[in-house]
Every structure is written in C-alpha cells, then in structure tokens.
Write a protein that binds this DNA or RNA. Sequence first.
DNA 1: CTAGGTTTCCAAAACGTTTTGCACAATACC
DNA 2: GGTATTGTGCAAAACGTTTTGGAAACCTAG
Lengths: 347, 347
Amino acid sequence: MTPQNAAPRRAAGGRQPASIKDVAAAAGVSPTTVSHVLSGNRPVNEQTATRVRSVVSRLGYVPASLARGLQAGSTSVIGLLIPDISNTFFAELAKGVEDAAHHLGYGVILCNTEFDSDREDRYLGLIRSRFVDGVVYAAGSPPSRQRLDALVGQFPIALADEEVEGLEATLITTADHEGGGRLVGEHLRTLGHRRALMLTGPSDLRSSSARSTGFMQAFEGEVVERVGDFKEESGYRLITEALATGRLEQTAVFAGNDLMAIGALAALREAGLSVPQDVSLAGFDDIRAASLVFPPLTTVHQPAYDVGHTATAQLLKYVARHQVPPSSRHTLPVELKVRESTAPPAS
Amino acid sequence: MTPQNAAPRRAAGGRQPASIKDVAAAAGVSPTTVSHVLSGNRPVNEQTATRVRSVVSRLGYVPASLARGLQAGSTSVIGLLIPDISNTFFAELAKGVEDAAHHLGYGVILCNTEFDSDREDRYLGLIRSRFVDGVVYAAGSPPSRQRLDALVGQFPIALADEEVEGLEATLITTADHEGGGRLVGEHLRTLGHRRALMLTGPSDLRSSSARSTGFMQAFEGEVVERVGDFKEESGYRLITEALATGRLEQTAVFAGNDLMAIGALAALREAGLSVPQDVSLAGFDDIRAASLVFPPLTTVHQPAYDVGHTATAQLLKYVARHQVPPSSRHTLPVELKVRESTAPPAS
DNA sequence: CTAGGTTTCCAAAACGTTTTGCACAATACC
DNA sequence: GGTATTGTGCAAAACGTTTTGGAAACCTAG
C-alpha cells in the first residue's frame, strides 16, 4: 500500500497532457495565436496556422474544458435529475433530454437520486456549483421545496413531468395526466363497468392526483381509492389487501402507473382471478413492459421521450442566451392504448 | 429577436452568483481566509470563521466547481459511455456505476451514443478535454479502435462488459459470457434437444461470440447459426427468415440476448408455433422484460449492476490516486434462470 | 516620401479557486 | 528581557483558457 507499490509499471505514455503553452512553444508562436487558429476567432496567417495545426495533432492537444468553461462562464453541459434510471419511463425521458441536448451542442450529466435525499442534496450541490448550465428536474417524488427554492430564479431549471405546487418561475413540461385519467374512465365506463378500484400513486404528487381526478370525472361509477407509491410492490400489496377482506367488490382496477399495474396483475393471478375475464385492469405510462406482460396491458401512453425533449429544448433556448427562463407550461397529449387487459364485466 | 426582446422581464434575482471575493469583502477578510474556513485546510480564528460562515450562507455562496477543478486538476466526475440507456441492461449497469461513483464522492456524466459515431466522437472529445477524471466504456457495439487508442494509456478508462481485441492496458470487467452460453447448451441438451437454432449478436463483439462458443461446446448437437445485431427486430426477422423456407428444422432456439428472444417469440407466435410446446426458447441477459413476457423466458442472468459497480470501483481506485490503471480483468459469474419457455422437445 | 490602412502576432488581464510562503502579533519559555 | 513558538491572516502564484488593446511590419495610394 505504499504510494510506489507499482513503481516499475511502465504505463504507456502516462505523462501530463499538452497545454496550449506547449503547443505554442513547439510551434514558435504565442498561446494567443494558437487559440485564434483553433477558434477561428481572428485571422491567422495560413502558413502559421498550418504549422500550429500540425503541432496540435502531433501533441494530441485538446483544450481543457474546465479552463475554457471558467473563462466563458458556461460549461455546455446540463444536468438531468431523475429518481430511477432503470425505470424505463425515465430512461425514455432521459433519451429525449439527451437527444435535444446533443442536438444543441450540450452534454448531459446524469443525476440519479434513487429517491435518496442525501444523493439529491449532493447533486444539487454540484448543480449550484455551476458545473452545469441548467437542469432538467424530473422529480418522481415530491421534491424538497427548500432545496428547489435555492435554485429557482437563481438558476435555469425546467421541471419535467411533475409540477410543484407554488413554484411559478419555471418551465414546466408535462403530459396530460388528467386527460389520460379521463380516457381510462371513459373506456371502462363504456365497457360497462360501474364499480372500480383505483390504485393511486403518492397523493402529494400532482401527476398522481391529476390522473385520479380525470378518472373520477369520466367514470361516473363508484370508485374506491387505495394509495400506493408508484412502485410495483405497492400494486401487489394493495390488491392483496383488497382481497384479504373477502372477494373483490369491483370489476375493474385502474392502477396509477404500469409498474403498479404489473404488481396488481401478479397479485390477481395468484388469487386465481384472471384478467380480463374476472377483472379488467388498466395502467398508465405505457412502459415497454406493458405490452410484454400477459395479457398485454391497456394503458395510457405517455410521451416520455417528448416530455424530456421539449423540456430540454425549452430550457436550452434560454440557457444559450444566458437568460433566466420565464415561467411557461407545456402540456403534451397522451393516448389510450387499448390492449387485452380490459373487457366488459363478466356478469 | 433583438437581444433585449424580453427586457422588462423581472426575473427573480437573476444576478451574478457570489464569488469568494464577494464573501471575503463582505466579511472583511481575504479570499484566502474564506477558503480556509470552508476547507478546514488551515486553522482560522473561531470568531472570524463564524462571521465568514454567516456571510457564506447569507450570500448563498457555493464555490465554483470549474475553478476548483482547474486548480485541483480533477473534476470528481467520471463519464459513462453506453449505446442505449433505454435498454434495461445498460440502465442497470448505469445504476451500478452511479452507485459506486456516488459512494466514492464522484458524479457520473452520461454519454448515450445511440450507436451513433458522431455522437460518440463528440463525447470522446468531452472526455479528452478532461471534463471527467475517468471513463467507464460499455461499448455495446464494436468500439472504433482509433478513437479508443487516443484514450488508452493517456486516460483512465475501464471497459465494462465488452472487451476489445488487442486493447491491453485497461481494466476490464465482464460477465462470464462463455460460461453462460455453456449453461444454456447443457440445459437444452439435458432436456433432450439435438438440433438448435442459434441467433447471435454482431459477430465482431466478443461478448456475442463467447456466448456462441460456450453454447456449442456444451450442446453437442447440431447447431445452425444466424447472425443478428442484438436488437429485438433482428430476432423477429431471423425467425421469420428461418420459417420462410418451410417449417423450423430445430426444436430449440437460443437467442444471443433477451431482446432478440422477445422478437423471436413474437415471430414464433405469429407463425402459430407455441413456446415451449413446439419449440423451446432461451435468451441471455435476464432483463426485466424477460420475466414479464409470456411465457416467462429461460435466460442467463447477467449481473449488469455488478459489472458497472465493479468496473467503476476499480477505475476509481486508481483515479483517486492520480494513477493510470494497470491492465486487469474481472470476470463475474452468471446464472441460468430456468423459466417456462424451455421444455423437452415434442416428438 | 509619407499618411493611412492591413495584416499578423503578442502581452496582459480575466475567469474563481486553492496553495504556499510570509508577516505580524501574542504568548510561552528560560 | 530576549528568544522561540504559536496563532492568525494576507499576498501572490498557479491552474489553462479566451479576449482585447496594441505594436510592429508591411503594403498602398496620393
């Protein structure tokens, strides 16, 4: 464990990377000239330029982004804060963010919080230290207001898919959760269902409550609500609990998201109930797994990619001009995907 | 489009962030002292320190990471290069990377290439400009050697799950692809299959060829190979092509990964063949969808999370000490998950 | 031949930190 | 009462760029 424990190792070319000064010295010019050659910011004698360029490539010189960023006051990188990258919904969203960012010449730094506030704090620190030029915040869980408050107005931030109560001065891009809930409500009502069980996500999440609201508005029948947390396990648990008191009173289940629906599906199957013969089941999000489970899930397709893409494009529009984004709101349309997990009630 | 087009907007507190000088001035000390208070690098009079701290929090001062990084010669961020974040395998791997990095105080910047070499180039530029202290490279497609060569030896790099021919001086962490192939081969042989169709990934990918090799070794029967590209669509296409010439000669199909298996499953179903009664089907990776499809897929569980975690932990061990990692190799064990898509042959 | 314009390059400042060598004062020791 | 020692804080350099105001050399036109 001595510092030199591997002293004899001949690491291939482990020396310091070349700086602009090295290039300048080797080419017999000043650093200024090298900079001009590379940026094209001012004209340089073609002969000199050629000489410089050849030295640059011989030395493998790449300008240090930190120094450049320090001088320019920006990094050309934005942050993406999400709770769980292995959830395909966020993965899709991330892809949208990344595409939009890349297209405008920005990089994306992934801040995966795992719903852990320690981790979120650390990342917010990184953000506030101006390592990034802006941030796309896809909460997924009720964001801690105080942390957010330190950012909003000071820093370009765009909220993706989850608005936050009372946070005005921010870009918001979200899918039409309420409309999606309504779509499911109508669908189940039209099929003839009169009693439904609604498995919601966290009640303090706007996206979650909006889905419920829309559903209630359109369903017009009797709805029992059980509160979960948008995770698969809670869908399973909620159904198990509902069945514990005897048999299921309702003919249809609307889960607040697909993950919960998949959990519910497992619980129903274990209880000997078949979908959709005994009970209809619908989800929300249209994650990849939704069409792969058996039976394929009727669900509301949420444009995760577009949400990420739009949020980012909006954000960068202002970031690029060194402006603080004004508050604005973009609601993206959703779409009902009717598959095989819903059918008219049995009786 | 004039620069001032939004002039009257009163952005909440849109002024410059405080610098260490501002704090120093407001506290009546020198920047040096502020730095020492914050870093604890040298003792500071408690009374002075308190005063400084109060100014820091009043001004909301956060040290600029760029300046700090420039001075320190490191950024405490590593890059993660992957081809497709919406593939749950890479998402899992990313989570492993992110966990390990976070644990050691590093951030992760996501470089999603979408199998696009332009994009990969851009990200490699960012990496070479020392915006990150190291990189975990999970190729997924045959990496462009020349790009990689510019990095290896100059820059701390760890290869995850995909080794590259002739690239020695690098950390490599990979699952036991060959062993996994062998597991599947044995399983199908034991079930009584004598003829198998193997759907491979790109032949220039070591992970792909290793799976085939292992399978061949253990299966001992007649194997027909068809080359795909690890994407769902190619699994579908390959099966469709195999069926085009009449009926399927083989009683078992081994797909190089789960995505292809899922594609194959769809094609088989459409052709009226049922799994596993008419034909057994096995995959590789054990992505989430594998257990959700119907029938649940027999597959080889690959420790994606562990691969990412190990690669990162190894990498950071050296990065933290400003050392170039020596070449070393970690092969992680895989596990056969027998589910319902495989059974003894019909006849 | 000279005034003005170009072309070509450089020196120096700035970006915001951390680090290090010193200076000064106060305290301790003999 | 002089001399180490400790405590406290500052100035200046350094990290690697980009930007900007000139300076020198050359050319052109009158």
